[in-house]
Design a protein around this nucleic acid. Structure first.
Length: 228
DNA sequence: CTAATGATGCACT
DNA sequence: GTGCATCATTAGC
C-alpha cells in the first residue's frame, strides 16, 4: 500500500488533504470564485506533487457576461468545455504563448468558469519546483505565480489538461480543501484586461486575499467582500 | 511603453 | 475554405 505518499504531519494541516466539497462546483461562477480562495490546487508532475493555495480568482459567469468567452451562449471548439458540468478544467491559450487555467462551475449546459489568476506555493519545496518550471530564480512572489500565465508555467499546465476533472485525488490535477473563506480577508475589484466587456468590464468580479504578496494586481478600488 | 506569437472566431468568398 | 483582427498576458526596454 502506498497511501501514505504525503509528507505526513509536517505542519498540522488537514490529513493529506481532502477533496474540495463538490457542492462548490455546482455554484454559479460568481459565488464559486470567492469560495475557491484559500483552497489548495495540487498538480501531479513527474517530479512530484506541487501544492499551492489559490489567492486570486475571477468570475466569468454565464451566457450574459460580455467578458466571457461563452457570451451569448457561444459554443465553439474552444468554449465547449465551459458547458461541461462543474469541476471540469478549462485551459486556453492566450496571446499565442500563455495558458490560462479555469475551474468550470454550475450545471452542464450553463457556461460558467472561474479564472485562477494567482496562487502561492504551500511549502518551500513547492516554491522551488515552481521556480524551476518557470525557469527563474526565486525573487518576487508575483514573478513566480502572480498572474494566470505565470501560474500555468509554474505548474506545467497546458491544453493537455483541458477537460480534466478536479475531483479525482491522484489525477493530473485536483482541488483540496484549504482554508475556510470566513477565515480570510477577501476583497473584490474589477476584472483585469477586458475592455471589450463594456458595462461588464467594471463589475467587481475579481476576488483576492488582501495583502497577499502573490496577487497579480492590487486595485485601489478594492472593497471588502463578506461571505454570507 | 511595446513586441512577441499563434490559435481562434467571424466575415466573406 | 481563406483572410485577418483579436486577444481573460508577460518580459523586457
Amino acid at each position: 500500500m502506498d497511501m501514505n505518499s504525503s509528507p505526513g504531519a509536517q505542519s498540522g494541516q488537514a490529513p493529506g488533504g481532502s477533496l474540495l466539497p463538490p457542492e462548490i462546483y455546482s455554484l454559479p461562477a460568481l459565488q464559486a470564485a470567492p469560495l475557491l480562495l484559500g483552497q489548495h490546487l495540487v498538480r501531479r508532475t513527474e517530479d512530484g506533487d506541487i501544492r499551492c493555495r489559490i489567492v486570486e480568482t475571477e468570475s466569468y459567469g454565464g451566457a450574459g457576461d460580455k467578458g466571457s468567452h461563452a457570451f451569448g451562449g457561444r459554443r465553439t471548439s474552444r468554449t465547449e468545455v465551459m458547458f461541461s458540468s462543474g469541476g471540469t478544467v478549462y485551459v486556453y491559450l492566450i496571446y499565442g504563448m500563455y495558458h490560462c487555467f479555469n475551474v468550470v462551475t454550475a450545471a452542464e449546459g450553463d457556461p460558467h468558469a472561474v479564472l485562477i489568476r494567482a496562487v502561492e506555493p504551500v511549502t518551500a519545496g513547492d516554491a522551488k519546483l515552481m521556480a524551476a518550471y518557470r525557469n527563474i530564480a526565486l525573487r518576487k512572489p508575483t514573478d513566480l505565480s502572480g498572474g494566470p500565465g505565470k501560474l500555468c508555467r509554474a505548474l506545467r499546465i497546458d491544453k493537455s489538461l483541458n477537460g480534466s476533472r478536479l475531483d479525482i485525488h491522484g489525477g493530473p490535477i485536483w482541488l483540496e480543501q484549504g482554508d475556510s473563506p470566513e477565515s480570510l480577508d477577501i476583497v473584490q475589484a474589477p476584472r483585469i484586461n477586458i475592455p471589450y466587456a463594456e458595462e461588464y468590464a467594471g463589475l467587481p468580479w475579481r476576488f483576492y486575499i488582501r495583502n497577499n504578496p502573490y496577487v497579480s494586481v492590487k486595485d485601489k478600488l478594492e472593497q471588502p467582500f463578506t461571505p454570507e
